[in-house]
Design a binder for these strands. Structure first.
Lengths: 337, 337
DNA sequence: ATGAAAGCGCTAACAT
DNA sequence: ATGTTAGCGCTTTCAT
């Protein structure tokens, strides 16, 4: 038998110190009102004395559930997701639940590994923005007893909860705005086509073009970024500007991408919006203060997270209806387009 | 006996399905080479068949340690910390270790609660940017077997590891720059005085004033923000501008605060740097692309996190020397000052 | 090479 | 009101 690596004082030591049984100590912890106040006093003092910290692993093993939920987002470097995480955390805290925040960073291998690890940890539930559209692993997870809530992407099945923002409409808002400004050569710096949000916004853009009777193939160039961050966007625009014909407007899948676009254009001395218009998405905190205040789409980000956590808790408490909440985005017109 | 809330298949079911004992299944998991390859094959198939997921709680309980480390930062909304978290995560991943990321948000009650919760979870180690200077709870934690590494703040004791950036020097760099530009009325929007970095940077500013033979009380106004975010900063500046005499330069404890300052000044139509100069700290991704490109202090943020995780792992593996790594900051002069 | 069984620290049913 | 004890799922020693 290997010695425990971290020998701490447990309820046994507390019991000995207080002259009671482990059952009583356990009751002080979990059913204080079953214990005579005098005894309770004594036990609590013993706990302080030996520096007792409950072994949560044993606790949860016994109970069969933990008070830790997990959130997996696409990128922790995107303020959109940290804002949503704040909402999640706040709601979970109300239920004395902690949050494990993970970031998949578009690595589906990593997503799978983390998913497994979280399941092994026995998380109480999972809030996830999937990096692809295979819901099967998530459904399996839920069948094994771990409630799943999709974040920022509507559930394709009635078995999963979801909270999302209407991305088709969001894409449509942006494209309609650009078209109304007379733009006919639009570059859409989109994310990976495996990600729902990206596909949906693209659909919205197409819809806007159609509404004007315009042929997408003539007026729209869509590029899928790989990392979907500012550096990635900068490189992509750099490349596009090497082409003979420039777009008159660039719409970005999020504000971080727009940041990279602005950086590239600034370095090349290209004026926004005069030479090229730029539109972001998310309305993160810095959007309004960029060199050219960013026209973008505001999402109820905090509420998105907060609601997702609420659904998760309801589900973990045995709710059987799987809600699909859809929130509405809003175009914020500033100077960049 | 209450039924387990989440009945999953365990090694017992796998053993039954494969026609072996639980010990053998365990060996397939942990000592595959002790098992005859034919048996191993059979067991592995049984695992897939029943959809086996190892119960990490029981695993860790038995082993006495987990493969999850935790990081507690001051604010998850600050890109500085998410960048550091990326460094931490990357280094931990090399050791097959997961990260729990927590944010204290200046709430010391919350910090204490989360600390306890993490200890109960049996985290393998803790990387923390403390919101105050009481190291006693951290030392106690370490004595109880959980290695602690201070992030972005030098350890005041030889018993704790730390990785930090020279904040006194950083503050000095900024102030020296401002003084050399002729500024004699400097507003320092600092964070809470309980936080080491804030105190250290303030010391650096004082040092710079002294080097010029200037009296701090005449040339420096230092304000402690409470939330230390952009909205908080905006409010503070709004208030300062109500005073009869305005500062000629505002230095900020980080770039997020600078963002709020720029927002306030823009709303009031005050020109940067002509009317008031502004300096940030951290050089986060958006710093260079703000309405006025931000003069700021660059820190080796990713490396900060990466190194902290390396120290943590070394410590958890039994290293007994407690290193104090100090990195160097660098002034990045742009347009805002 | 495999099996049997003890025990990690805790909770809760049952006994007193 | 308190004590006793089985067992959560796993690992590991010891025996076969």
């Amino acid at each position: 038998m290997s010695r425990p690596v971290r020998p701490r004082y447990g309820i046994r030591e507390v019991a000995a110190a207080a002259g009671v049984s482990v059952g009583t100590v356990s009751n002080v912890l979990n059913n204080p009102d079953l214990v005579a106040s005098e005894t309770r006093e004594r036990v609590e003092q013993a706990m302080r004395q030996v520096g007792f910290v409950r072994n949560g692993l044993a606790h949860q093993l016994r109970l069969g559930r933990s008070n830790t939920a997990a959130a997996m987002v696409l990128s922790i470097g995107n303020p959109f997701f940290t804002e949503a995480a704040r909402g999640i955390e706040d709601r979970l805290a109300q239920a004395d639940c902690m949050l494990i925040l993970c970031s998949t960073d578009k690595d589906s291998g990593r997503e799978a590994r983390q998913l497994r690890s979280l399941e092994e940890q026995g998380v109480r539930g999972l809030i996830i923005t999937p990096g692809h559209m295979q819901t099967e692993p998530l459904l399996a997870l839920q069948r094994r007893g771990i409630p799943v809530v999709l974040l920022d992407c509507p559930s394709p099945t009635p078995e999963l909860c979801s909270v999302s923002v209407d991305d088709v409409h969001g894409g449509e808002l942006v494209a309609t705005h650009l078209l109304s400004q007379g733009h006919r050569q639009i570059l859409f710096l989109n994310g990976c086509r495996e990600v729902y949000q990206c596909v949906a916004r693209s659909r919205g853009v197409h819809r806007a073009l159609q509404a004007e009777g315009l042929e997408p193939s003539r007026h729209l160039l869509e590029v899928s970024l790989t990392d979907v961050d500012d550096d990635d966007a900068e490189r992509a625009v750099e490349q596009i500007l090497g082409l003979p014909e420039w777009p008159t407007a660039i719409m970005c899948v999020n504000d971080v991408v727009a940041l990279g676009v602005l950086r590239c254009l600034r370095k090349r001395g290209i004026k926004v919006p005069d030479d090229i218009a730029v539109v972001g998405y998310d309305d993160v905190s810095f959007a309004a203060e960029l060199s050219t205040p960013l026209t973008t789409v505001r999402q109820p980000t905090y509420q998105l997270g907060y609601t997702a956590a609420a659904l998760l808790l309801a589900d973990a408490d045995g709710a059987t209806d799987h809600q699909r909440v859809v929130l509405q985005p809003e175009l914020v017109v500033r100077d960049s387009a």
